[in-house]
Nucleic acid binder design. Structure first.
Lengths: 133, 133
DNA sequence: ATTTACGTTTACGTTAACGTAAGGTAGACT
DNA sequence: AGTCTACCTTACGTTAACGTAAACGTAAAT
């Protein structure tokens, strides 16, 4: 247990460069243990990286992903902190749901585009047929 | 009918600056009619802008949005063009569906975070209670 | 007549998210 | 011992997507 990863392993697994991973550390999104000079990434670090990259694919900035990660991390201690966190989570969820609606809207338009496209193809077929008849 | 918009109107409606709209034109994403010097945006232009901004919120680059817009636009004429377009549409839809899965994964993690958070709050409540008893 | 409110072009500035190059270290293989 | 490989730091370069400023045109309102 408690396996830890080298930077190269993570880079390969997630299809990014080591530069990218170090950059995220510069930005405070990751803070791996050190073994001498080398970075040792825990399972938690790996999870964070996964969240960052997922956020990126969804169009979030690194700062936004940083927020998400802080939510995922330590739940804070005081009641005020906890309540603030709950609020943030709720906000972020609303944002995600809104994004989902937009995504669905886009999917709908893809469907329409495809339909127009296949109708155009059908017309072409028909025309070709009458021409050859 | 055939109402057309000034650049300022569109900017206000969508909450962007006029610079942004002109920038999209530079990039070839929009090409409004001219009336003298001034730009006149048709309903179709407006739709394109809406698609661009939606794409942006979903994390697409302008070049990707440009592709989507071309799909939405003229369905081409030759069979080869139409078939290529159908393929592109199918690809983009797959991409959107993948993105949807990721979005849902993120929502799930938001739920978990919220749960951990509310559990922590519950523990705090309990502790406070026994302390005051 | 001039201020106000829009529009125009041209062009340099800015920020995020890395890429890339240069040079150094530390362990493993031959 | 020499070389390979994977790591490290430092620092300048790059691209996308605009921001911002300057300098101007036009048309309605005061």
């Amino acid at each position: 247990m408690n396996h830890s990863y080298h930077i190269g392993e993570l880079a390969e697994e997630f299809g990014v460069t080591t530069r990218t991973i170090r950059f995220y550390e510069e930005k405070g999104l990751l803070s791996p243990r050190r073994e001498g000079q080398q970075r040792c990434y825990s399972a938690a670090d790996r999870t964070k990286l996964r969240l960052i990259l997922r956020g990126k694919r969804l169009g979030f900035s690194l700062d936004e992903s940083a927020e998400i990660i802080r939510m995922y991390g330590a739940p804070g201690s005081s009641r005020k902190q906890l309540e603030a966190l709950m609020k943030k989570i709720a906000d972020k969820r609303r944002q995600l749901q809104e994004q989902r609606r937009e995504l669905d809207a886009m999917l709908t338009e893809m469907d329409q585009a495809e339909q127009r496209c296949s109708e155009a193809l059908a017309r072409l077929d028909k025309q070709t047929k009458t021409e050859t008849s």
